[in-house]
Design a protein around this nucleic acid. Structure first.
Length: 410
RNA sequence: GUGGGUGUAGCUCAGUUGGUUAGAGCGCCUGGUUGUGGCCCAGGAGGCCGUGGGUUCAAGUCCCAUCUCUCACCCCA
C-alpha cells in the first residue's frame, strides 16, 4: 500500500472543523489588528532562503527540501514565511506604496527533520509580519496578537517569554565578553557546545546538557550589556505589555536560531504538549530586508505552529466537538421514486443541506442514516401521500410528523 | 543524523510456558412483519497477526534483517 510520505499527514474530514475554527479565530483577530492576508508561492528560489535565513542555520544547512527543476534552477519548498513575505514586499514595492505594511498568512511549511510529537515535515503555520516601522508598539502588538489568538482558542497553559538581542554592535561587544568568560572553561563544554562556541556562541545558553548549564549559570548576560537605545526599546515593549495586562517573563537565555533577529525576541511556550513546546516564536528583524533588497525596511513578525496548537487544545480539552448536521434527509418508500427524490433534493439544495440514499436500502436503514448524519428533518416520499401530492415531514428532534404539499417544497 | 519503544479486524486492544478452524469492545451491514431513527436484542461481513528470511514436528508467540509508526536528542512552529 502506498502511504503518505514520512512526516506528512492527511487532515481527514473529521478534523476539518477544528482547522476551520482555528483559521476563523486567526482571521478575525488579525482583522481586528488590521493585518491583511498575503499568500505567496509554496516554493521559491533556494537562494532566497539561504540568504534570508542564514547559511549557518540548521534550517538552511540541513532541513530544506531543495531540488533542481527542469530549467536547472534550484528551488526550495518554503521552510518559513518571513523571507517570502519580504521578497513579495520588495518585488511589488509595497514598502513604497505604504509606509507600514501589516501582513498575515496561513500556510504549509516544509522542513526535513525527524518527526516527533508536534513536529512534521509538512506542517502549517499562521503568522504576521509588520514592515516599515521600528516602533516598540509593534513589538508589543505582535505579542498581544499571538497571545489573544491562543486565549481565544481556549488555551491557558502557556507562558510568554521575551528577551532582547539588541543591535549588532552591542551584540558583537557582548559576544567578545562571553568568549572571554568562557576561554578557560571551553574544554569542559559538551562536544556540541564547543562547536557552537565557534559558530553561534549565543546558543550555548539553551543547551540542555547539565555541564553546559552549570558553566553558563554565571556567564554574563546579553541583556545586561545592551546599549542604551536597545534598553530603552525593550523597556517600552515591557511597559506596553504590562499596560495591556499580558503576563510575561523576561528570559535572558531566550536566543532564537534565525540569523536575522534584532531587539525583541519572544516565544509563547506551552506546558501541554511534548518537548516541542514552542507554540509561537518571533522577533524583530530590522536588518533582514536590507540583506535581501538593499533597502532599509525594519520589520517584526512571528510564526505559530498550527499542529502544535491543535495538539495543545486537545490535551487541554478545549476542542469543542462539532456534531454533523444537515437540514434534510429524504427517505424514499418505493424505489421507483428515485428520480423524484433526486428532483426534490436538487430543488431543496438551493437553500438547504440535503442528503438521500444512493443505494437501495430499506426504510429503516435510510432512517438510521438520517439519524447518523444529524438530519434535522426527514422528508418521506411515497405511498398514498405521494398519490395525493403530499409527503411526510418528520422533525427528528421531537419525532413529530406532518403532511406537506410536494408543490410547496423549496 | 543518533538513541529508546512499537507494529494482531476500519478503530482501541486481548491472545497464557510456541500446539487444533486467531478473539473482545466500538464501528459497519442485515433483520426484530406490511412505510420510520436514536435504546435494546439477534445474526453477519471483515485479519497472508507490518514485510522477508531462519529455528522447530509445529510460530501471532523464539532468532535475524528490513520497513512503518512513535517518543526523545539535535533544532525548531
Amino acid at each position: 500500500m502506498i502511504k503518505a510520505i514520512t512526516g506528512t499527514k492527511d487532515i481527514l474530514p473529521s478534523e476539518i472543523p477544528n482547522w476551520y475554527n482555528l483559521e476563523d479565530v486567526v482571521k478575525n483577530i488579525m482583522n481586528s489588528f488590521n493585518y491583511k492576508e498575503i499568500r505567496t508561492p509554496i516554493f521559491e528560489e533556494t537562494r532566497l532562503f539561504s540568504r534570508g535565513i542564514g547559511e549557518a542555520t540548521d534550517i538552511v544547512s540541513k532541513e530544506m527540501y531543495t531540488f533542481i527543476d527542469r530549467s536547472e534552477t534550484s528551488v526550495t519548498l518554503k521552510p518559513e514565511m518571513t523571507a517570502s513575505v519580504v521578497r513579495a514586499l520588495l518585488e511589488h514595492s509595497l514598502d513604497k506604496q505604504f509606509q507600514l505594511n501589516k501582513l498575515f498568512y496561513i500556510s504549509p511549511m516544509f522542513r526535513q527533520e525527524r518527526p516527533q510529537a508536534g513536529r512534521f515535515r509538512q506542517f502549517h503555520q499562521f503568522g504576521a509580519e509588520a514592515l516599515g516601522s521600528t516602533s516598540p508598539a509593534l513589538d508589543a502588538e505582535m505579542i498581544i496578537l499571538a497571545y489573544q489568538i491562543l486565549k481565544k482558542l481556549g488555551l491557558s497553559n502557556f507562558v510568554v517569554k521575551i528577551n532582547s538581542l539588541g543591535i549588532p554592535s552591542s551584540r558583537e561587544n557582548y559576544k567578545n565578553l562571553l568568549k572571554e568568560y568562557l576561554v578557560d572553561k571551553k574544554q569542559n563544554l559538551s562536544e556540541e557546545s564547543q562547536k557552537r562556541y565557534e559558530t553561534n556562541i549565543l546558543r550555548l545558553f539553551d543547551s540542555k546538557d547539565e555541564r553546559d548549564q552549570k558553566i553558563m549559570e554565571n556567564a554574563p548576560l546579553l541583556i545586561e550589556h545592551l546599549d542604551d537605545e536597545s534598553l530603552e526599546h525593550f523597556d517600552e515593549v515591557k511597559q506596553m505589555l504590562l499596560a495591556a495586562g499580558i503576563p510575561f517573563e523576561v528570559d535572558p537565555k531566550l536566543v532564537r536560531g534565525l540569523d536575522y533577529y534584532t531587539h525583541t525576541t519572544f516565544e509563547l511556550v506551552s506546558g501541554s504538549v511534548g518537548s516541542q513546546s514552542a507554540l509561537c516564536g518571533g522577533g524583530r528583524y530590522d536588518l533582514l530586508v536590507n540583506q535581501l533588497g538593499e533597502r532599509d525596511v525594519p520589520g517584526i513578525g512571528f510564526a505559530a505552529g498550527i499542529e502544535r496548537i491543535l495538539l495543545a487544545m486537545e490535551n487541554e480539552k478545549v476542542i469543542t466537538e462539532i456534531k454533523p448536521q444537515i437540514d434534510f434527509y429524504i427517505v424514499r418508500l418505493e424505489k421507483e421514486l428515485n428520480k423524484k427524490v433526486f428532483e426534490i433534493a436538487t430543488k431543496l439544495r438551493e437553500n438547504n443541506s440535503v442528503e438521500f440514499d444512493y443505494t437501495q436500502r430499506s426504510v429503516k436503514a435510510q432512517m438510521r442514516e438520517a439519524n447518523r448524519l444529524g438530519a434535522k428533518n426527514v422528508l418521506i416520499i411515497g405511498g398514498e401521500e405521494f398519490e395525493r401530492g403530499t409527503a411526510v415531514l418528520k422533525n427528528m428532534e421531537d419525532g413529530s410528523q406532518e403532511e406537506i404539499l410536494l408543490s410547496e417544497i423549496k
